[in-house]
Amino acid sequence: MTWRRSVCWPGIVVAFCFVPEAHAHLVSTELGPFYDGAVHPLVTPEDLMTILGLSVLAAFGGARAGRTLLLSLSLAWCVGAFTAYSIAEVDCQVPLLTAALLLLLGVTGLFKASPPTWLLGAAGGVIGLIRGAMNGGSARAQDGEWLCVVGIVTSVFVLAALLAGLTVVLEQRRVTIVLRVAASWIAASGLLMLGWELRGLATAT
């Protein structure tokens, strides 16, 4: 338990140190602000992959871990999104942090290193808070209506429920291979993205 924590947290802290700016635009569905928001997590691979990576980890902890993740991630995303929408314009992305996080989630899932439920809940809370704040902040920066934020939060809840449910069922049916392949692909994507961003930084400097 201690070694897992000692491996995970320094990685997250180091990743937090790199926060370059980029823009995250909301797409227009022409169906109204709620649907503009609802579509946002579906077409944002950073959000999708993060939720999938957490769901794979939850699957190894069973249905209880899945429920905990669903609750903590959705609530934290909601709090982060509405807080940021209310107080600040944060039109930025954190590609290095996202890449490092995907790598961490993927490698953890690949080796089936299931974290304890409380740790998974806490991680879901922190990640949900950050990504929610980024979503809410960018919605405000682009003059999106509050219904747009409701759409984002609703979509995240549905996505988390579907993915956590699917992965938990797969694990219960002993289809662990699918989960480990998914984790491997998430880790590989994160690693490539990390290299991509580092190359971009090196080119810029």
């Binding site: 993927g106 690949l110 491997s184 590989a188 290299g195 580092l198 190359r199």
Partner: peptide, 14 residues
Amino acid sequence: PLVMATGGFLGLVG
């Protein structure tokens, strides 16, 4: 894919 991504990472960072 994971080890290939490691190779890709090495190539990307030069």
